[in-house]
């Protein structure tokens, strides 16, 4: 008879080899919440060591030059972002006043990453205007760029606030529909003029809208550095978001909702 521990072992082994479906992820989360513990990193370690063992010399190749340049652009953006520690509403950092101790290493999450995770969490809630937040940081940045959402049939209004130096920003919406996270989620895309013109969208994060009334503020969670934002777009996507928006997947459910085109800088 399979115990919860055995099911957990099966799930983390699958996680390390073939990945989990949404329902399996939920089951894993439920088991963790129930106190069942298996170190998933040990299985990832085993898979990584095996993968290296299976690799032959013929598999190895040097990074293309243009990709190396992009990685170093990302590195500089990462350093810049990390040197402007974010103070997030509703986190321990706000109460302690020491953002560098949000989460200890014991939990396997370094402080910077915890800040990013907290940004995602914050996207699920209303943003308390009176507390220090990313909004305060971005609004205080000398290079803040503000772009309105383009006119749309749904009457949605709002703005994109972005700071190139902070590599961070936030979105505001009024009139954006509440979504069912089990069925569909909103995803932000940032088109960078300095990337490949055909494949230049940077994933700006997935978020939900939980209340229809008033103005909702959502932090941007750009996965990569953005040198020159040329277009911001909001799409609806399957839960968890996608790597590429597919307009033919289900045009009724998954589509472009909003765009905002900043004025060219300089």
């Amino acid at each position: 008879m399979s115990t919860d521990y055995d099911r957990m072992v099966d799930l983390v082994a699958d996680f390390a080899t073939v990945g989990l479906s949404s329902s399996e992820e939920q089951l894993l989360s439920d088991l963790r919440a129930a106190g069942v513990t298996v170190d998933s990193e040990e299985f990832e370690f085993a898979a990584a060591a095996l993968d290296r063992g299976f690799t032959t010399s013929a598999d190895s190749d040097e990074l293309p030059v243009h990709l190396r340049e992009r990685i170093m652009t990302d590195a500089r953006a990462f350093i810049s972002q990390a040197q402007h520690p974010l103070r997030l509403a509703g986190t321990e950092a706000d109460t302690s006043g020491t953002p560098d101790v949000i989460v200890m290493r014991r939990n396997g999450i370094l402080p910077w990453f915890a800040a990013a995770a907290a940004i995602l969490l914050a996207a699920f809630a209303w943003w308390p205007a009176s507390e220090p937040s990313i909004r305060d940081m971005v609004d205080g940045a000398p290079d803040e760029q503000v772009t309105r959402w383009a006119n749309n049939d749904a009457g949605i209004t709002g703005e994109v606030h972005w700071s190139p130096s902070l590599q961070n920003g936030y979105l505001t919406f009024t009139g954006l529909d509440v979504n069912d996270p089990e069925s569909v989620q909103y995803q932000l895309w940032i088109f960078d003029a300095q990337r490949n013109p055909r494949f230049n969208a940077v994933d700006g994060g997935v978020f939900n809208i939980e209340q229809a009334d008033g103005t909702v503020i959502v932090p941007i969670n750009a996965k990569l550095g953005v040198a020159d934002p040329a277009l911001f777009a909001i799409t609806t996507e399957p839960p968890g978001g996608v790597v590429k928006h597919d307009p033919e997947l289900d045009p009724e459910r998954f589509r472009i909702i909003l765009t905002a085109e900043p004025d060219p800088v300089g």
């Binding site: 898979a47 990584a48 060591a49 399957p238 996608v242 790597v243 590429k244 997947l249």
Partner: peptide, 25 residues
């Protein structure tokens, strides 16, 4: 673990996550 294994582990985690999203479609 060795540094290369750690790098490989982080890379695989990211790739499996991306791959899982793609496989939905």
């Amino acid at each position: 673990m060795k540094e290369a294994t750690f790098v490989s582990m982080i890379a695989r985690r990211r790739l499996i996550d991306r791959w899982r999203k793609i496989k939905r479609r």
